[in-house]
Simulated scan of single mutants.
Amino acid sequence: MEETTNTLGISAFEDAPEALTIAEKLAANVAATLAPRKIDNATLVTLPEGYRVQDLTSTIEAAQPHRARAQGTVTLGDVPSLLAYCADQVAQERGYIYADPDARTITAVFNDQRSTLAPGWRDHRAHFAAAFTPEFKKWLEQNAKPMGQTEFAEFIEDNLQDLHPDQAQTLLAVATTIQATTGINFSSAKRLQDGQAQLTYNEVIDAKAGADGALKIPQAFNLGLRIFKNGEGYKLTARLKYRLHSGAVKFWYELERPERAVEDAFTGYVQEVREKSGYTVLIGKP
């Protein structure tokens, strides 16, 4: 085979080793440029012009048997579960627990920013929301709302388990046997400056209950309720009210400061977390 030469008279075969070396170096440089780079916990790769930098961190992490760091939020159904989860995280020196009385929530932030030297991402959490029980919601929703005689009797019958047995039967008897009449007693009369007479009177309601009219109508009754799901029982007092309306009797009850009972029940949760968790508990929103 005849050896060929370029225009400079240099043999192409003589230049082959040097050209191959240059090509290998260029390929190596390109490969090094395109190779993924790890910066701290992030993995990046540089692509040619016209392309974008692709973050492969989550993809690579998802293929590992363990995560690079703990994150995410877990929702728990009661305080003992919250305490157990907080204990497992062993983050008493790094995290805070936040109690929000308005929202009735308790949230633990395990990677909080307690230390200015190593501030956390605040994205590893446990959350507990104190939810009302169905029975408490019934009494709360019907609070101070007038009911007809039959409606009131059915309401008491449906919720007998929340009352003391003796009081429950008394309320049922009152609701089903009450008889009431009204009268007007004039108490005074006086002459006004314009010469007209003004009469002052009081409306009197004579109410009797029981088959013989001898049953005493209670002014108040007590409820034994769990305010929050998976919580302890709580005693509430309700005042019984009744009025004649269009020839019929209207009943209703008024709970005595139900908001105070809710506040006290939630405060009990907060105190339990303070005493048992080992974390610093703050009142506020996380």
Rank of each mutant, 00 (worst) to 15 (best):
residue 114 R to I: 08
residue 142 Q to F: 13
residue 101 P to T: 00
residue 150 T to Y: 12
residue 141 E to I: 15
residue 188 S to G: 03
residue 109 V to K: 03
residue 156 I to S: 04
residue 144 A to R: 14
residue 144 A to W: 03
residue 184 I to M: 04
residue 152 F to R: 00
residue 157 E to T: 13
residue 175 A to K: 02
residue 169 Q to L: 15
residue 153 A to M: 09
residue 181 T to V: 12
residue 215 L to N: 01
residue 174 V to I: 13
residue 149 Q to N: 08
residue 179 Q to R: 13
residue 199 L to N: 10
residue 155 F to S: 12
residue 113 Q to D: 09
residue 156 I to W: 03
residue 110 F to P: 00
residue 118 A to M: 04
residue 110 F to S: 03
residue 180 A to Y: 10
residue 116 T to D: 04
residue 135 E to K: 10
residue 205 I to H: 06
residue 201 Y to E: 06
residue 198 Q to V: 13
residue 102 D to H: 05
residue 125 R to Y: 06
residue 167 Q to R: 07
residue 127 H to T: 12
residue 117 L to Q: 09
residue 210 G to Y: 02
residue 208 K to P: 00
residue 188 S to P: 05
residue 148 G to A: 13
residue 137 K to L: 12
residue 138 K to M: 15
residue 212 D to T: 02
residue 140 L to Q: 11
residue 179 Q to Y: 08
residue 131 A to R: 15
residue 191 R to H: 12
residue 183 G to P: 06
residue 121 W to A: 15
residue 151 E to G: 15
residue 136 F to M: 05
residue 209 A to I: 07
residue 197 A to L: 14
residue 175 A to G: 05
residue 199 L to P: 02
residue 204 V to G: 03
residue 171 L to Y: 04
residue 215 L to M: 01
residue 167 Q to H: 14
residue 102 D to I: 09
residue 133 T to G: 06
residue 162 D to P: 12
residue 104 R to W: 00
residue 142 Q to K: 13
residue 182 T to G: 02
residue 170 T to R: 15
residue 105 T to E: 08
residue 196 Q to K: 08
residue 164 H to N: 14
residue 135 E to V: 14
residue 190 K to V: 04
residue 160 L to W: 14
residue 206 D to V: 13
residue 137 K to G: 04
residue 157 E to S: 15
residue 191 R to Y: 11
residue 107 T to Q: 09
residue 148 G to R: 02
residue 121 W to E: 12
residue 101 P to H: 01
residue 111 N to V: 00
residue 103 A to T: 01
residue 122 R to G: 10
residue 193 Q to E: 06
residue 153 A to G: 07
residue 199 L to E: 07
residue 214 A to F: 09
residue 163 L to R: 07
residue 105 T to D: 05
residue 207 A to S: 04
residue 100 D to M: 00
residue 189 A to M: 13
residue 111 N to S: 05
residue 190 K to E: 13
residue 175 A to V: 11
residue 195 G to Y: 07
residue 111 N to E: 07
residue 104 R to Y: 05
residue 187 S to F: 11
residue 192 L to C: 08
residue 101 P to M: 03
residue 178 I to Q: 01
residue 107 T to V: 15
residue 137 K to C: 02
residue 131 A to V: 14
residue 110 F to I: 01
residue 172 L to K: 07
residue 173 A to Y: 12
residue 126 A to M: 06
residue 145 K to D: 05
residue 215 L to H: 05
residue 157 E to P: 11
residue 184 I to E: 10
residue 205 I to S: 08
residue 134 P to A: 13
residue 147 M to Y: 01
residue 146 P to K: 13
residue 150 T to Q: 08
residue 180 A to F: 11
residue 135 E to T: 06
residue 173 A to D: 08
residue 193 Q to R: 11
